[in-house]
Structure formats: structure tokens, C-alpha cells
């Protein structure tokens, strides 16, 4: 009554025939070819979305130009605004060269101290970018580490880290920075303060953005840690640390790149805000925010160029970086396409 032959699926498994098809499968492609194919596919996918968006191309070009000019400011800039010996107070407050009283040596005029505004902006952008990048790197390292631990370990570690992140998110970053910079200014000497201020800015801005990294990475980690390749690594006996670092981390870094780009714009903006409020970098080595702050004192005296030009550079830079971030988010996330 319970005959095995009734079980139709058993016999057609046909052992011998199946083995033959396995042998004849074409599996011998040369490794170099597959590698270049892999990169070509990967490249073309992202490249296509890049090429098909004119806005992104313009944003990329603008960002590249600003980055280039800022990085190579000492070679590109026509003057050396931080070298007191080259500055003449007689040149102060000159309007752009196309105005009647303009001086052909100073293309977009000079500031209230007689520094060439174009050179000062280039050097200022450099400081803004340095602070922005360092802050993002700091926030990224802290956030990714804590997010990975939080997501992978779970339990009390997770609860603790996430509560700290929420507290952090509920306090405005600028408030923390004001408090820290203000306290520091009272505690240490002016020279030491000028030395330390960049690190203080990096620390405070970085602190205010790490929760975003932590939350995103935690979310992706929660998904990855239950995937079978992580379970396989656990069965193999790999340590927790190695699994987090070698298996989970590479698979959660996609969104991190996007957040990093968008946060670069936010960090630059925060630095400018802090400098504008007077707790950022000092006027002797001004960033874009400091320049805008300096200039706004003279805005109603008719010296519009001291504020407008650094302001425009800041706005264009932040906009371009933001557009790049948006594009990256769409390009790396096929679901949004």
C-alpha cells in the first residue's frame, strides 16, 4: 500500500545524467577577464546615472574646481593674505577692480585689513574644507564603530548606545559648540585657543553628526547579522570582532558614503555658522564664516563685497556638495531610481 514507487519525485532524480551536466557547465573563464568585466559593469551602472544627469555633472565640476583651488591655494592665490609683511593698510577696503575706485591688483577688492579678498577666500575655503572633512571623518569613525557594535551585539549595549545617540540628537550641535568654545576661551590663553580652535570645531561638529552614522549603520547591521553568511562565519568559529570588521562592515558601508557626503555640506555650514557667531576660527586665519562675519559689520557702509563673495562661495560649495550627495544616494540605491 505504501509503495515507494508512488513517490514520483524520487526516481527522476536520475543520478548519472545529472552528474554529466555538472561537468559540462562552462566554468573556466580566465580570472583577469571576469575581474575587468565586474568593474566594467559596476562602473557603467553608476557612470550612466552620472552621465544622464546634467545637474550632477555641473555640481561635480564646481566641487572639483573649488576643491582644487582651495587645496592649491598657496600656489593659485595671487597674494599671501596671512603674511603680515605683504599687507598694506593703505589697500584696505578697495572695491572690486571693475568698480571706479578698484585696483587691478585686487580682482574682487580687499577686506577691511587690506588683504586681497580672492586670496583670503581661497585660504578660507581651505580651512572650511579641512574642518568639514575632519569633522565628517571623526563623526564617521565614531558613528560607524558604535553603530556596528550596537547593531551586532544588541541587548544592553544597543540600548545604551542608542539612548546616548538620541540624547545627542536632541541637543543642537551649535549649542554644544558655543558652550565648549566659550568655556575654552575663558580657560586657556588666546594663543592656545587659536591653536586649539580647529580641533575643538572638529570635535564639536563631529560629535553632533555621529548619531546619523550610528543609526544608519545599526539598521543595516541588524539586517546583515541574520544573513546566512554571518551565521556561517559564526559556525566556522570566527570571533565577534572579526565578523563585525570583515563580514558586516563592508556590507553596510554603502549608505555611509551617502551620509558622509551630505554631512560634509552640513559640517561646512555649521563651521561657517560658528565662525560667524564668533566662536570659530579667529580673523587672523579666517574661514568663510569668519569672512562673512567680518564683512557684515561693513555691509551698511557700502562695502558689500567683503560679505557677498565669501557668502556666494559658501552657498555654491554647499549646494554643489549637496547635489552630489543626492545623486550618490539615488545612484547607490536602485530602489529609488
Amino acid at each position: 500500500m505504501w509503495s515507494i514507487r508512488d513517490c514520483a519525485l524520487i526516481n527522476p532524480l536520475g543520478a548519472d545524467m545529472a552528474e554529466q551536466t555538472a561537468e559540462s557547465l562552462p566554468l573556466t573563464e580566465s580570472p583577469t577577464r571576469t575581474q575587468s568585466t565586474f568593474y566594467r559593469i559596476w562602473d557603467s551602472d553608476v557612470c550612466y546615472s552620472f552621465r544622464s544627469s546634467k545637474v550632477t555633472i555641473v555640481a561635480a565640476v564646481v566641487t572639483a574646481v573649488i576643491f582644487f583651488l582651495a587645496i592649491f591655494a598657496p600656489w593659485v592665490a595671487p597674494h599671501r593674505p596671512f603674511d603680515v609683511a605683504t599687507i598694506d593698510l593703505m589697500d584696505a577696503e578697495l572695491p572690486p577692480s571693475w568698480e571706479q575706485e578698484g585696483d587691478s591688483r585686487f580682482l574682487i577688492g580687499t577686506d577691511n585689513l587690506g588683504r586681497d579678498l580672492l586670496s583670503t577666500i581661497l585660504y578660507g575655503t581651505r580651512i572650511s574644507l579641512i574642518v568639514g572633512f575632519l569633522s565628517v571623518i571623526f563623526g564617521l569613525v565614531v558613528g560607524v564603530t558604535l553603530g556596528l557594535m550596537s547593531g551586532y551585539m544588541g541587548g544592553y549595549v544597543d540600548a545604551f548606545i542608542m539612548r546616548v545617540a538620541e540624547i545627542q540628537l536632541s541637543i543642537p550641535g551649535i549649542l554644544v559648540a558655543l558652550l565648549l568654545a566659550g568655556t575654552l576661551r575663558g580657560v586657556i590663553s588666546a594663543e592656545a585657543y587659536n591653536e586649539a580652535i580647529i580641533y575643538v570645531l572638529v570635535l564639536t561638529i563631529g560629535t553632533s553628526i555621529w548619531p546619523q552614522f550610528a543609526r544608519t549603520v545599526r539598521g543595516s547591521t541588524l539586517v546583515e547579522r541574520n544573513k546566512e553568511y554571518v551565521l556561517a562565519a559564526r559556525v566556522i568559529g570566527l570571533s565577534r570582532f572579526s565578523i563585525m570588521l570583515r563580514h558586516v562592515l563592508p556590507n553596510v558601508m554603502g549608505p555611509v558614503l551617502v551620509i558622509a557626503t551630505i554631512n560634509l555640506a552640513i559640517a561646512i555650514l555649521t563651521e561657517a555658522t560658528l565662525s560667524f557667531l564668533g566662536v570659530g576660527v579667529p580673523p587672523t586665519q579666517p574661514s568663510l564664516g569668519t569672512l562673512i562675519n567680518e564683512g557684515q559689520n561693513y555691509l551698511f557702509s557700502g562695502l558689500w563685497w567683503i560679505t557677498i563673495f565669501p557668502g556666494a562661495v559658501l552657498a555654491i560649495l554647499v549646494l554643489a556638495v549637496n547635489l552630489l550627495g543626492d545623486w550618490l544616494r539615488d545612484a547607490l540605491n536602485p530602489k529609488l531610481r
Binding site: K227, E228, Y229, L231, A232, A233, I236, G237, H247, P250
Partner: peptide, 26 residues
């Protein structure tokens, strides 16, 4: 002394690793 083979062959191999590294892991 024990190893495990999983159900979903699309999830049980780390997509960012080369086959050599995957097999060499144990």
C-alpha cells in the same frame, strides 16, 4: 568538528568576498 551548509546559496556567501577567501576562511 562541525560545519553547516545553509539553505539560501544567495545569502550564505559574503557578496564582497572572492571565492578563494570564502573557502580559505575555515
Amino acid at each position: 568538528h562541525m560545519q553547516m551548509i545553509f539553505q539560501d546559496p544567495f545569502a550564505s556567501l559574503n557578496p564582497r568576498w572572492r571565492v578563494a577567501d570564502i573557502i580559505a576562511e575555515p
